[in-house]
Design a protein around this nucleic acid. Structure first.
Lengths: 205, 205, 205, 205
DNA sequence: ATATAACCGAGACGGTACGTCATGTCTTCGC
DNA sequence: GCGAAGACATGACGTACCGTCTCGGTTATAT
């Protein structure tokens, strides 16, 4: 790495962490629209300038602050496609129950409908991170023989995308739009619907 | 009786219409976060106070302005469950393609995670309006023999809710989060997945 | 005279009284600049329209409400010019001590520097009412032989005006600008200065 | 020392000057009651917040803007008490003829009857500044032998106050309440009255 | 008796200004 | 030479009054 240890910047790393930490705390307390840069700076014990030196605006900062939450999502092998899907649904639901995620996720999506740079950031920070889980789960199910291998890579990608939108969409919609709990019963019900749908899909052309 | 023979000058119905109209126009041009009350008032040829006399804040106003868009959603009988679902998916996708809906829907949901009054308004103005379609479609499929009748009303309601979250969630997620087009091919693919899932669901206990 | 007994419902005299009464009460509590038409209307148990049917604007209404206070000013004969002046000074001071007068008088004068209609109203409602006292006092002093008769009516008027401005000006300035009490001692001191000035005036050419 | 070595960007002195200048200009054109903070800010090429950072409200700002006008008042030695008084009367009258002073003076006095902080500001910015002239003039007359020395300092102060209220009060009342011109003739007439009053005052007990 | 006309209350209307707040940029000084 | 502190221009916020304008209804005189 060319990183040639410039004169006196031990602060930088600490500041980054403090800012993102403060951003999440502010999100929990205030929600997206009441969160202000000045308040985050004050919580982080940092000047407003320091925030703007790192992110171009509020949106980008909040996306980064929230993105790390999605790193927690994992796909432990529970032995069957059904169990794997149910597990990831409940994990995702638990994440959406945390107020910093709940508030920020929709707000950032809303903003991204108008802001191309933000949309790109959302894609790489949130979407790709989650889609990876679908890919893994599918490969595992194929290895178990629960799902057929797909020869056409384009077709495979389309199916992955579809599954991703169905799973993530249903959970988000239930949690945030319908505002009903994503509990174990709902997860079981949804998983049965999805997996049986996937199972009988291959028969039709 | 709810009426109370109001005294004083009655509110102008023309103003109501002009404001909601102006709100939608502003949404298209500016998006949610750039939309201002003053601008909407100016477009509507109305004083800002006239807005605040009717709605407590921007959010409530925008929900009402957007709600009427959902009145367009219909469920014409296309002869089969598959065709009905595909039809409603495409209709909903077309709605989400309209910039005033796209921008406003997510923003309003984001706000509603923090604001109980707003959540209630979203439920009655958006959620219930859409869920009605699911109920209709299901009854029609049952009449056709494509789906079994459900005796337990509580169970029926849960299934309705599940279908609603899966359909609406998947379409919204595809359109706004993944930011990919909801075209005929995707609709067909998704519909097949859902309908076959529903079909094979009744076999499992 | 054109008094053709107008048709239609006559204006409520009770409302007139209630409004002026309410205006004075509001002046005491709120002061001129915080007094609002809506508040006065509410206090009087009357609609705002009823106010505007009688006065063109806030200023005119307040002048009328305050004017009656000046009707209380009298000039009882105390036997000497000195005693008469001292009496009227203390009377005027007592009037300016009442919060509705104190607040309103200066405010209305301030407004009248920009508003010709208001200036005219101030002149007839306040200035002329007070100047009358000076005229009376002077005639009485002339009858007593304390002051010489003035042949030139123009000259007489100028002297009246001068005395009026000196007396009213000094009292108002002491009470409102210097914000010091106009007590008996000050009144005696001021009266001696004025009367001895008037006495020795006739000697100089 | 009261200083506390302030950190951060210092306030712009250019802005201070521009604001007070703009305030006086706005007073001339619009008068007190039509003057708005937004307009003053725009004239000064400054943001509204910059005004509110310096003054708590319109009143305080206008007092400061007007106060400097009173710095112009001087008391050149014209050789006699009579001439000195007449000079200061005409100077003061000229000041009151300027529209920014005329309008603001009474308005600010009116407000100060309700606002203690404002009253204090008026006293230090306007009253004390003018009273200084009376003190100077009196000392000069005593040196000339036109007025007796006063041993009791308390008595001296009372006489100073009295003269101040009579002079300032009469001029203000003539100019603003009676709304008549304070011309040379009036000044001569008033001065004769005052000076002869002062002269014959010492004879009475 | 009934019309006509001006009044009344209530309250919505188009405006204007308020004073506050957040944004993102820019100085200044201290470490 | 970076960074905290904080002033800056901008511009929206939501509120408060202004003075006007419907409303439905009331109370007078004039027919």
């Amino acid at each position: 790495m060319p990183q040639h240890t410039r004169t006196g910047r031990p602060r930088s790393v600490a500041a980054d962490a403090a800012i993102l930490q403060a951003t999440r705390a502010a999100l929990v307390e205030l929600g997206w629209s009441k969160l202000t840069m000045g308040d985050v700076a004050a919580r982080a014990g940092v000047a407003k300038t320091t925030l703007y030196r790192r992110w171009a605006n509020k949106n980008e900062m909040v996306v980064d602050a929230v993105a790390v939450l999605f790193d927690e999502l994992e796909l432990p092998d529970r032995g069957s496609l059904l169990a794997d899907v149910e597990g990831v649904v409940l994990q995702f639901a638990a994440l959406l129950n945390r107020p910093e995620a709940k508030t920020a996720l929709m707000a950032v999506v809303a903003e991204s409908t108008r802001d191309d740079a933000l949309r790109e950031r959302v894609r790489s920070a949130l979407v790709d991170r989650q889609k990876r889980l679908v890919v893994t789960g599918r490969e595992r199910a194929q290895a178990r023989g629960e799902l057929p291998y797909e020869d056409d890579p384009c077709e495979a990608s389309r199916t992955t995308d579809l599954i991703f939108d169905v799973v993530a969409g249903a959970v988000v919609h239930r949690a945030l739009v319908s505002a009903e709990p994503v509990d174990e019963e709902w997860a079981r019900r949804f998983t049965r619907l999805l997996v049986s749908g996937l199972g009988s899909l291959q028969d039709s052309p």
